[in-house]
Amino acid sequence: MKNLKRTFILSIFVLIFVGSTKAQTGLKNGEVAPNFIAKDSEGKLINLKQLLKGNKSVVLFFYRGQWCPYCNKHIKNLQDSLQSLNAKGAYIVGVTPESDESISKTKEKTKASFSLVSDNGYKIMKAYKVDYIMEESLASKYKTYGIDVAKNNGAIDAVLPVPATYIIGKDGKIKFVQFDTDYKKRASVKEILALL
């Protein structure tokens, strides 16, 4: 009964989420990936241009937060395959609107050892066209289930990314995009490895 209730609730979130993200487009294959500079949760400076100088590619993904079971599963899958991804010359970066405190919870749940970045001000999400502002009714609905998006983000507004994955080649161009407003759909590790 508990799982049925959770499935029902998540289904409602999918319907609301899909309706509220129609304006989001993401970036496309072949586009130049916007450069960004940020500190990850360990204090390491993450500079896309510098990462591409030292690696064959960067796998950049956006996730909603430590409270999202689909995000945690995706991160865990990436962590479980990190050795294979690194062996193909890929550097993995996860971006979330959540605060560093919430990122710590993600790391506890997933054992992620790759870079996770708090996108304070949503600059990276905006550059990659994955940001969306939750309608007040949706943000309030999440709160009834114990998820305060604005608080988790350390902000006054409730902003989430469309969960998306980009593979950025050494030339700085995007060579793979997984962008789907259905937050349950993510790029598989198998798919990513095949394209590296």
Rank of each mutant, 00 (worst) to 15 (best):
4 L>C: 07
10 L>W: 12
10 L>V: 08
11 S>V: 05
11 S>A: 13
11 S>P: 03
12 I>P: 00
17 F>N: 15
18 V>A: 12
18 V>S: 10
19 G>F: 09
19 G>Y: 04
20 S>R: 08
21 T>C: 00
23 A>P: 05
24 Q>M: 09
25 T>I: 08
25 T>D: 09
28 K>M: 14
32 V>N: 03
33 A>E: 09
34 P>N: 10
34 P>G: 07
34 P>C: 12
36 F>E: 01
36 F>A: 03
37 I>S: 13
39 K>S: 14
40 D>L: 06
40 D>T: 12
42 E>I: 02
46 I>V: 12
47 N>I: 04
47 N>W: 05
47 N>D: 15
49 K>V: 11
50 Q>M: 14
50 Q>C: 09
50 Q>I: 12
54 G>D: 15
54 G>L: 11
56 K>I: 07
61 F>K: 03
63 Y>M: 13
64 R>Y: 06
65 G>C: 04
67 W>R: 07
69 P>R: 10
70 Y>D: 10
71 C>G: 01
72 N>H: 09
74 H>N: 10
75 I>W: 00
75 I>P: 00
75 I>E: 00
77 N>R: 11
77 N>I: 09
80 D>T: 13
80 D>M: 13
81 S>K: 06
81 S>T: 01
82 L>F: 04
84 S>Q: 12
84 S>Y: 08
84 S>P: 08
84 S>M: 05
84 S>H: 07
86 N>F: 08
86 N>K: 14
86 N>D: 13
88 K>Y: 02
89 G>V: 06
91 Y>M: 09
93 V>A: 06
95 V>Y: 13
100 D>A: 12
101 E>K: 15
102 S>W: 10
103 I>T: 05
104 S>L: 14
105 K>V: 10
105 K>A: 07
106 T>A: 01
106 T>K: 00
106 T>F: 00
107 K>G: 06
108 E>N: 15
109 K>E: 10
112 A>T: 03
112 A>K: 01
112 A>V: 03
113 S>C: 01
115 S>N: 07
117 V>K: 12
121 G>A: 01
123 K>N: 07
124 I>E: 04
128 Y>W: 07
128 Y>E: 02
130 V>G: 04
131 D>I: 04
136 E>I: 13
137 S>I: 14
137 S>T: 13
138 L>F: 15
139 A>K: 05
140 S>T: 10
141 K>L: 15
141 K>N: 14
142 Y>N: 07
142 Y>S: 07
143 K>M: 12
144 T>W: 11
144 T>G: 08
147 I>Q: 01
147 I>L: 05
149 V>T: 01
149 V>Q: 02
150 A>K: 10
152 N>F: 11
152 N>Q: 05
153 N>G: 03
153 N>R: 05
155 A>M: 11
155 A>L: 08
156 I>T: 15
156 I>F: 14
158 A>Q: 06
159 V>K: 13
160 L>C: 00
160 L>D: 00
162 V>K: 00
163 P>R: 06
168 I>Q: 05
170 K>Q: 14
171 D>C: 01
173 K>H: 06
173 K>G: 01
174 I>N: 04
174 I>R: 03
177 V>I: 05
177 V>S: 02
185 K>Q: 08
188 S>W: 05
189 V>A: 05
190 K>M: 09
192 I>M: 02
196 L>W: 01
